[in-house]
């Protein structure tokens, strides 16, 4: 365990220096836009660390909204005729700067699905493994943050390689993994500080941040209840009434992983894509026979909450499929609040 001190005046220089070995990704606000999004930072672009939380979660770094799985051609003149070729993609080391701890922890939940002993999604895994996560601790959590009730929190280290803590004129960088250590070295940040004192300082900040989080959820009863009891509960109609069945909650959520596969053919060649999809859309479960097992809105709304708060909990016995970032609540056009739904399910 060690802690490095990074003077803010060395911040930009270090980032630029690390470019010789890493691609940099971070939140960046384009000119004229209202909020920053995670993107690959061009030379000279600095990650925006002022925004508490990005509207769009950083899941797209490893799970883009649309991704080509393979290309093909049926042109007999081509030497690739009738071959399925995975497109070249840059999987060189990539440092994700300023990711929030719960967003990084979300990858661990998604990993349970994309990286299993039986099956490994190469697109997700390759992109994930290329990343070194340099997280930014949250000193001032926002109102919809309930990450302390999930397994995460504003200073959660589980998904990170380095945890940065903003100490006003400098950052303290807690090194969590060797990957993280390697990145700090590449950036030339090597000023070690007294570990015990620094950890104490960080823990103090952590406690301060955690007590600021007023919203709490609990799911101890959900665990005990049977699936059918929850499935047949009478509150679903009420929960679902306002829902307009858009995809905002699922698309913004860092832990939602569903996708749809689409082929696009142009002449003799084409591509197969993986596109985000979500349980809120009727088309998601529409069978080619015309039957839709989740044909009406209330079934889809129930599915979203049951998956996150019950099925996942039962299947992996490792908490809920939610890190408590609060995006779904904050950006739902009609204010459907997962904290309230969880309360209903737990009562």
């Amino acid at each position: 365990m060690k802690v490095i001190k990074i003077d803010k005046k060395d911040w930009v220089g270090g980032l630029e220096k690390s470019r010789s070995a890493y691609r940099l990704v971070g939140p960046f606000k384009e000119n004229g836009k209202q909020f920053p999004v995670f993107k690959e930072l061009d030379k000279g672009q600095e990650p925006d660390l002022t925004t508490l939380n990005t509207v769009i979660s950083p899941k797209s770094i490893v799970f883009p909204q649309s991704e080509v799985m393979f290309e093909y051609t049926t042109d007999e003149k081509s030497e690739d005729c009738n071959l399925l070729k995975r497109p070249e993609k840059n999987y060189s080391p990539c440092a994700v700067i300023g990711i929030r701890p719960y967003d990084a922890a979300a990858f661990l939940l998604v990993q349970k699905n994309f990286d299993t002993p039986d099956y490994r999604d190469p697109y997700w895994c390759d992109a994930y493994e290329a990343c070194t996560f340099i997280g930014m601790a949250i000193n001032n959590p926002d109102n919809t943050d309930f990450s302390t009730s999930t397994k995460s929190g504003p200073f959660d280290e589980s998904g990170l390689d380095v945890l940065l803590v903003d100490m006003k004129d400098h950052f303290l960088a807690k090194v969590i993994t060797d990957k993280g250590d390697a990145y700090l070295k590449a950036a030339g940040w090597t000023a070690k500080v007294d570990t015990d004192a620094a950890i104490k300082q960080i823990d103090e900040m952590k406690n301060k941040a955690e007590v600021k989080i007023a919203s709490k959820i609990s799911f101890d009863n959900i665990e005990k209840k049977s699936i059918m009891e929850l499935y047949e509960a009478d509150f679903w109609e009420d929960v679902a009434f306002a829902c307009i069945n858009c995809g905002t909650c699922t698309y913004l959520c860092p832990t939602c992983w569903c996708f749809d596969i689409q082929d696009e053919n142009h002449g003799k060649s084409g591509k197969r894509f993986k596109n985000w999809d979500g349980c809120m859309f009727p088309l998601f479960t529409h069978h080619s026979s015309g039957h839709n097992p989740r044909g009406i809105k209330v079934m889809r709304v129930r599915q979203r909450f049951m998956h996150k708060l019950k099925y996942f909990l039962d299947k992996y016995e490792d908490g809920i499929m939610c890190v408590g970032c609060g995006r779904c609540t904050r950006f739902c056009p009609v204010n459907i609040d997962i904290r309230n739904v969880c309360k209903l399910m737990n009562s």
């Binding site: 649309s66 991704e67 080509v68 696009e264 142009h266 060649s269 894509f273």
Partner: peptide, 8 residues
């Protein structure tokens, strides 16, 4: 005009 979809 879309010759092929441009995606990430």
């Amino acid at each position: 005009i879309t010759k092929e979809a441009k995606v990430a």
